[in-house]
Amino acid sequence: MNPSLSPKAFCKHPGNPSRYHLGIIWTNGLPCSTSITITSIVLTPSSGTPVSFEGLAPVSVGANSNVVRTYDSEETPNSANGTVRVQYTYTTCDSPPVTVAALVPLTASTLPPCQQYRIPDYGEPGHP
């Protein structure tokens, strides 16, 4: 199981308060379907307090395929660049299935405003 940033989907919704927007590609290289349980997604900005993300519903990914999911952070007064850490578990194809826990850092070279990627602001029509 290998999460990665979705191109042009790690950005910030500026304002007061601000939110971060994150697209994750969940890639399953296993020969069976798996279910991912996201324990936490936390962004640690270069300034300010760490920010958690909302809407962490389980994700099902078919064998040898990928799924893209988007997440928005809780409200924050901060909109600085930072690093995201994704903590999750998934099940293997073993019989019986084994649950594997992982913690993955995801970084991007920049964290631009979401409008640059044509992603509507949080709460606007068309926001993913």
Rank of each mutant, 00 (worst) to 15 (best):
N2R: 07
P3T: 11
S4K: 05
S4R: 05
L5D: 01
L5V: 10
S6N: 11
S6I: 06
P7N: 12
P7H: 13
K8S: 12
K8C: 06
A9K: 13
A9F: 05
F10H: 05
F10A: 08
C11K: 01
C11E: 00
C11W: 00
K12P: 01
K12E: 07
P17D: 01
P17E: 04
R19W: 05
R19A: 04
R19G: 02
Y20P: 00
Y20T: 04
Y20G: 02
H21K: 09
H21M: 10
I24Q: 05
I24T: 08
I25H: 04
I25P: 00
N28W: 00
N28Y: 01
P31C: 10
C32G: 11
S33M: 12
S33N: 13
I36C: 05
T37K: 05
I38D: 01
T39W: 00
T39N: 10
T39C: 03
S40W: 08
L43Y: 02
L43V: 07
S46R: 15
S47R: 14
G48M: 11
T49M: 04
T49K: 11
P50T: 03
P50C: 05
V51M: 08
S52F: 12
F53Y: 15
E54S: 15
E54D: 14
L56C: 11
L56M: 12
L56E: 09
A57Y: 10
A57P: 03
S60K: 15
V61D: 01
V61T: 04
V61Q: 02
G62F: 13
N64D: 10
N64V: 09
S65E: 06
S65L: 08
N66G: 05
V67W: 07
V68I: 15
R69F: 06
R69H: 10
T70H: 14
Y71A: 08
D72Y: 12
S73L: 11
E74Y: 07
E74N: 12
E74T: 12
E74I: 12
E75N: 01
T76H: 01
T76G: 04
T76D: 06
N78E: 14
N78K: 13
T83H: 03
T83A: 12
V84M: 06
Y88G: 02
Y88P: 02
Y88F: 15
T89Y: 02
Y90A: 01
Y90P: 00
Y90Q: 05
T91Q: 11
T91Y: 04
T92H: 04
T92V: 08
V98F: 03
V100K: 08
L103E: 13
L106K: 10
T107F: 04
A108H: 03
A108E: 09
T110P: 00
T110L: 09
P112V: 10
P113F: 09
Q116K: 09
Y117T: 02
Y117Q: 06
R118P: 00
I119N: 01
I119M: 06
D121M: 06
Y122A: 06
Y122D: 03
G123N: 07
G123L: 10
E124G: 05
E124M: 14
H127D: 15
P128H: 14
P128D: 13
